[in-house]
Structure formats: C-alpha cells, structure tokens
Amino acid sequence: MESGSGIDDYETLISTTDADLLKRSWRNEKAAPEILQFQASLVQRSREQIQLMEETVEELVENGEDPLTVSLYQMDIDRTLFLLRSYLRTRVQKIEKFMFHIEKTAHLWTRLSRQEQKFAKRSMEDMKKHLEDSVLCKMPDRYKSHLKQSLISAEDDMVPEPKLDAFVICRTIKFLGGLPVDDSGEENPLDMYAGDIYALRYKSIKPLIESGQLDLV
C-alpha cells in the first residue's frame, strides 16, 4: 500500500461522523440477508449524543432561542433516532426470522448484543412452544422435533436459513482488484474501482463487507 493512502484513510476516519457510521451500519444491515456484527460502541455513542442533543434543545427552548434553530436541532435528533430505531428493528426482524439458525451457529450468535441474545432465547421458546402446541404434539413419536424432520435425519434439516447467494447491490469504498465473484470455478476476477456499484452475490463479497471495504446499498 502506498504511504499516501494511509493519510487518506486517517483523514476519512476523522471526517466520518457517528451519524455517517450509523447510516452505513443501518444500510448494510438492511441489505444483507444475514445478521451482521452488532455495532455496540456505535449504538452506545449515538444514544449518548441523542441525549446530549435533547438536553441542548431543552436549554435552547428555555433561553428563548430562535424556533428555527430549535427545529433544526430537533430534526437532527429525529433523524438519528429514526436511524437507530430502524437499525435495531431490522435486527429484531432478522432474529425473528432466523432465530434457530443464529442460535446454533456460534459465529452468528456472538454477533448479537446481550439484550438481543436474551430476546432471541425468549423468542425461540415462544416459537418452539407454538410449533409444539400446533403441530408437533399431534405428530407420532419419532417425528416430534422442531429442528429435524424425523429422528433419522442426521442434521437439523428444518431450520430456515438466510439465502447467502442472494444478489445484493454494493458500492466500493476503495479500489479492489481481482475479486473472485463467481464460484462456478471459472476464472473471472473483477476489478472494482472506488465508487463503483455492482450487483453481486452476497456470499462472494461477505468478507469485504465484514471488513468494511464494501458498502451495501
């Protein structure tokens, strides 16, 4: 890597606000078929900032500040709050959809926050009970599992999983060369320049999203 790009990275790093980061995490979370790493410190910081801004707004109102200024502040709070809520909501919906899969896959389970893990556990109990009461209690003995079709099945073959080979739209942040985008065995590397937009299979670019070199849109 050239020495110049290090400084560029540093500059983008300090000019990137938490609002940008939150927006990015929110977008990635919305577009990715599977659940991504919970941005614990980012969420924490954003919540602190929201609180701080709310206090500022109260102060401004008390001081009889120009209503326009106040409403601008308020709008900013509204936006951040929306992003935060929508981010957490999207994750909740993914947990609801793939709870059994997430729970039995260790590297996915650790991506959840402590509260999310608690939520997932309770959701699983609810769902399991519901499936048992509705279907499984009426099934014959060897067919009562909610994870397996029957006792003969070696693996859990009834757990919904996210479709990792779904296509996603992504944008490169910096140049990425020789990307293996096709797993058909054919040599078909792809050069991506900063700002390029591609529709690719999620599976093939998964590591790049996790390391923050690619953004989903």
């Binding site: 929306f82 935060l84 929508s86």
Partner: peptide, 17 residues
C-alpha cells in the same frame, strides 16, 4: 427487549420529514 434497551422501537416506523 425494548424495556431492556430502554427505547421504544415501535414508533418512528417511517423516516421522519
């Protein structure tokens, strides 16, 4: 879960403004 978070997720369902 929302109580644990101390944040109501059921509001703000649409982007504001």
């Amino acid at each position: 879960y929302m109580k644990d978070l101390d944040l109501d997720l059921a509001v703000d369902m649409l982007p504001p403004k």
